[in-house]
Design a protein around this nucleic acid. Structure first.
Lengths: 240, 240
DNA sequence: CGTCTGGTTGATCTAGATCAACAGGAGTGG
DNA sequence: CCACTCCTGTTGATCTAGATCAACCAGACG
């Protein structure tokens, strides 16, 4: 049962997420409509926004937290396709193509998301061509992203791909510790890291061991301390 | 130098490819405009429509032939991302995002394609919101496709992926031989097959050998005779 | 307490890469 | 015509990244 989010937000009008999503295209009047019809809710890890195969009857706007899109094939093999951070619109593809969801959106850390239902989206799309363009942009961006990952998966080793996701995480969440060296707190567990690069947990474990031995970094539970960021980026196959 | 295609076609108005692409959204007047400004040309294998890094200054409409989209990374590793058959619009992403091409469109078999330049596309898009929607549909379709391939690449073996592309080819180009058993003439060379699934040519060679030994099919140069299609589909990881 | 989930380690197995040699066209140039 | 090279494909020998299976540990949690 949807527990509505009690903490009072200023609504869509002042939601910082709105400006990073397609909803930036809305005019004031439309923002009011969006605000009235959206349903805001808190989600705990383990819950899902929707399940693979569900009807795409609306979309989600992630205000805070972390969502993973997981695909499971007929043989039960599971992959984490990608992660969505705050300011992502989730589930737009199934909605726009009028089809079922291709994957399951699972909540990886405590999240707040708004659900915007089919009829509202349709109304907004009809009255605002700019909104359609924004969705097109979004789709094209996702396409580039996935295509890039696809190419990586075909050409690069696990090690490269692993270091690549670390590099990406660092870009988004990286910190400097007291000594000024780059640090990162992983937002997901190692098992999920494995699912993200198509590896087994045991392999990730061993991988980390060898990367540590090579002196690139040190892992302590979810804390990563980078010792040689240049080497990390080089091994990740990123141009420095 | 563009050699213009001498063989007279009835133009876009009667082009069968038009009806399978976003250009189906055009009204008669717009078809005339498209027809006048497009540049039709014949391409031989080995040529390219555009190269990775080129500016996306228009898009291509493939009337006949076969084009491969290849991505090469900074280390020289090369992947065939996917193939485009007649009735595909090619290079739309770079055009729509106003960016450089992410991959090289290489001609794999003799092809006829029309080039439609930036200004024409813009004019059409401005006057026809439906056209934008069609591009959105196209992008979403590509996204699903690539995401599926991505998931496959992470979970399935080479053998599965190889049999999967064979199955897909069979769907598009399959025939029955005189004895009524399913047959296929590969549209690409084995090396390109390898690039398509991220394998080395030697591996594909051995792969075929083992699949033959298992009695699933027989390969003779580019001719494939399927002996046990059910087993092929099963091994390809497709629900039968 | 026991039980469960996430993570690590060891031993072993295997798919696929790598390196090297070679064979059959298809040009190309004399 | 032959000699030449280039290109695709095949095969063999070997190597290795990563999977698999099994045991084990630590913390969370009823």
């Amino acid at each position: 049962m949807p527990k509505l989010c009690s903490d009072s937000s200023g609504g869509c009008a002042v939601c910082p997420s709105r400006l990073t999503t397609e909803w930036q295209a809305l005019n004031d009047e439309q923002v009011v409509l969006l605000d009235q019809s959206k349903r805001r809710r808190f989600y705990s890890p383990g819950e899902t926004l929707y399940m693979q195969g569900d009807e795409g009857d609306g979309l989600f706007c992630l205000q805070s937290g972390l969502i993973g899109l997981r695909q499971i094939d007929e043989n039960g093999k599971s992959v984490l396709l990608r992660l969505c951070q705050s300011g992502s619109t989730i589930g737009y593809r199934a909605y726009l193509t009028n089809s079922d969801h291709f994957n399951t959106a699972e909540v990886l850390s405590p999240s707040v998301a708004c659900f915007i239902e089919r009829t509202t989206v349709r109304k907004l799309l009809e009255n605002n061509p700019l909104l359609g363009e924004k969705f097109l942009e979004h789709a094209l961006e996702d396409l580039s992203m996935v295509e890039g990952e696809y190419a990586r998966s075909l050409t690069m080793t696990m090690r490269s791909r692993f270091l690549h996701v670390l590099a990406v995480f660092y870009e988004q969440l990286g910190q400097r510790d007291e000594k000024g060296s780059p640090t990162l707190v992983l937002p997901i567990k190692k098992k999920e890291l494995a699912d993200l690069i198509g590896a087994k947990p045991e392999s990730v474990s061993r991988l980390i061991r060898r990367i540590e031995d090579d002196g690139l970094l040190k892992v302590d539970d979810r804390h990563i301390h980078f010792h040689d960021m240049d080497a990390v980026l080089r091994d990740a196959g990123v141009a420095i």
